[in-house]
Structures are given as C-alpha cells and as structure tokens.
Design a protein around this nucleic acid. Structure first.
Length: 388
DNA sequence: ATGTCATCATAGTGATGA
C-alpha cells in the first residue's frame, strides 16, 4: 500500500472514450494519470465525471486534435506549466506539467511526424529538441520528476513486433531514436525497459489489419523517471485489458509503481476521495474552472521548484482533508456497474495476459498485479481469434 | 498502398490525422 501508481494513457478522444477511461480508473485506481489526444476543446473536458470518479484534473485542450491532461486521485494537480517553452508560435496542445502526490509530472504528446520527410517530421524533431532542453532542467531537480506520455518513438527494434513493415515510418527513424536516446542520456530511467529487461512490452496496437488480435504492437508510450524517483521504482506494466474493451483506444494505459518516499507522500497516496464534488482539497466542482494558466516566463527549474513547494503543501492539505473518506464509496458509480455487467472476470492477470495465446511476441511480461492498489483483477480476454 | 477509427465539416458523405 506504500506505493504510488503513475500512469499514462493516450485515450484517443476523451469524450468518446469516457466510459472506458472511467472503467479503467475505477478498476486500477492510479494515483496520477497523464492523458493524451483528448481531441476536445477545453469546454468539452469531462471534469464532472472525473470528479465523480474521485479525480482532480488540469488540462489543455484543442479542437479536433492533440490535447493533454493530468489527473490526480483525491486532489487537484498543481499546474506548473502548459506548453513547451522555446517556440511561442507553437499552438498545439501537447504538454502540460503539474505537481501531485509529491511528484512533478510532465505529460506530453510528441508529434507523430508522418509523413516523412516533410514539415511534420521537421516539427517532430524541433519539438523533440525543445523537449530535451526542458527535460534537462527537470531531470536535475532534487524533487521526484516523471516525464510521461506518448512519445511517438519506438526506441529500438525490440520495441516493435516487426520493424520491417515500419522502417520508413517516423516512429522508427534514426533521428527520432537518436533524440530519444539523448533524452535518456540526460539521466532519465526508461521505467518499462528497466523493469522488464529484454522482454517485449507493447503499449500501442493500431487499428489496422487486426494488429491487436495478432499482438502486433509497438512500445511508444514511455515513463521516464529522474534519479530521485527512479530510486523508488518498484514495478511497471501495461493494462492490456483496456485495449481489449469494445471501442478501445489504440493505446493501452501504461503505469509505474513507485515506493512512497515519506509519510507525506504515503498519506497523499492513500487518501481516498469520496465522490464528486469535493474531490480536491474540498473544492466544489463549480469552482474548478480555476485551471491555473500560470506559465512560461520564469525558468523551468525555478518554476518547478516553486510548484513543488507549493504543491507539497497543498497535497498535504488535500490529503488530510480527504483521507477520512473510504474509497469504497466510489464503488457504486455507474462506471462500476457497467463494468460488472459487461466484464466476465476471468483469468488471473498474472499467468496469462490477453496475449498468452499469442504466437510470436509471446515473451512480453504480463502486468504484475503486485502493487497495492488493485483489489480486483482485470478481465483479460485473449486478443485473439480474429487475426492474421 | 493498404487498413480502422475519431473528429469536424457538411447535410449523408468526405477530408484529415493518426
């Protein structure tokens, strides 16, 4: 129970994916969540539903495309930045950063970059360079920092079912991989790789040609930890069962479990929000419109440190305010009911992930149910008959 | 090149991005 679960999930449209998102939150109860591809304007963000599920949020929307958000269980994330520094002309909503549960989290949606070559690929590399500059500030902070999201990079050929068919794709280009490698070289730990070693781990299966059914996946959603946070890394995995839901996103939620480093964090992590309204620090939904657009201007480091200090105080207060409410209270939400009604709770997530039956990339490690947060097992359906 | 899915435009399909 002394763990903090941080997750990233490219929802591919938060409004159309809301039922799946809520079901996942209910079942896995991550403490911090980065979301990408909201594909919604700010006004369309489903804050009330997330509040009802026990989460506070900050978000940066955009019409039709992109859009990122950070959720925190039982409190409001304290925003420290929206948008990457370095290019005022960049209007795409691809980066948001906030403090929650004692961790500074940068949530990013890196440009896809296709087709290549072309302006989109140039934009990708330019964005990547700006990310590197900002990440250099973050990695060196004495505070725990996580950089999570959809990086749109397959780091190596071991991170894809078959590199040959994607060789010309922007996700596999040497420039993309080089930029990712340079990022890691700053001192970040690639959590999934760290935990799973040589085993294959995928986080994305596109909608084409029954790639999910064939477990023809890619690892492009990453969770990078700076040294203070990496020292606490305990486990990491992919909630594959979410990818198997009807009308699923083409990504699956990806998570890390880190040990709580102090009583303060432990308290925050165990704070179970009740439902709705007073989710965060006791704030009613109505007042929630107070997203904090404080931003650029100050240096990343100073900003982050300020945010850290500020958020720590706030998180402590929030946790104290909400810690008396048992999480059990949320079990009666409609999301849960829907879950129960539709999910055959079958197999153990341990020995057999959905891909247990799968032929080739069969080495992937099943997500371990070993951290403290879960009490029910996900319904893991084999991805496949359909395929190939 | 293909395939599927979500969005927004437009007014039942079409364009765009992934």
């Amino acid at each position: 129970m002394k763990t903090l679960k941080i997750a990233t999930y490219n929802v591919n449209g938060i409004r159309s994916r809301l039922p799946q998102l809520l079901q996942w939150l209910q079942r896995e109860a991550p403490d911090i969540v980065g979301l990408q591809e909201l594909k919604s304007v700010d006004a369309g963000f489903p804050l009330a539903e997330l509040h009802a599920a026990g989460y506070g949020a900050v978000w940066m929307g955009q019409s039709s495309w992109n859009g990122v958000a950070l959720l925190a269980k039982g409190c409001d994330p304290v925003e420290s930045r929206r948008g990457l520094p370095g290019d005022p002309r960049d209007t795409q909503s691809r980066y948001i950063e906030a403090m929650a549960h004692g961790v500074l989290v940068g949530c990013l949606y890196l440009p896809n970059g296709n087709p290549r070559p072309g302006p989109k690929f140039d934009y990708k590399l330019d964005w990547f360079a700006r990310l590197q500059r900002h990440a250099q500030q973050l990695v060196a902070l004495p505070h725990p920092v996580a950089l999570i999201g959809d990086f749109n990079v397959v780091p190596t050929d071991a991170d894809i079912y078959n590199p040959a068919s994607w060789r010309r794709d922007a996700l596999l280009q040497p420039e993309s991989r080089q930029a990712y490698a340079e990022l890691l070289a700053q001192g970040w730990t690639d959590s999934l790789r760290q935990v799973h070693g040589e085993r294959r781990v995928y986080t994305f299966w596109d909608y084409f040609r029954q790639h999910w059914q064939r477990d023809a996946g890619l690892r492009i959603d990453h969770m990078l930890l700076n040294p203070p946070l990496a020292a606490r890394l305990r486990d990491a995995g992919v909630d594959r069962w979410v990818r198997d839901l009807p009308h699923a996103s083409d990504h699956a939620p990806t998570w890390v479990a880190v040990g709580a480093s102090s009583a303060r964090v432990a308290t925050a992590a165990s704070a179970k929000p009740k439902r709705g309204d007073r989710s965060a620090g006791g704030k009613p939904k109505g007042s929630k419109a107070k997203k904090t657009p404080r931003t650029a201007a100050s240096g990343a480091t100073a900003l982050a440190e300020k945010a850290a200090t500020r958020a720590k105080r706030k998180t402590t207060a929030s946790a104290a305010a909400t810690s008396s409410t048992p999480k059990q209270a949320t079990k009666t939400t409609r999301a849960t009911k829907a879950t129960k009604a539709t999910t055959p709770k079958a197999q153990t997530p341990k020995a057999q992930t959905p891909k247990a039956r799968k032929p080739r990339a069969a080495t992937e490690a099943p997500p371990k149910p070993t951290r403290g947060t879960k009490r029910r097992k996900p319904p893991l359906l084999p991805p496949g008959e359909g395929g190939a």
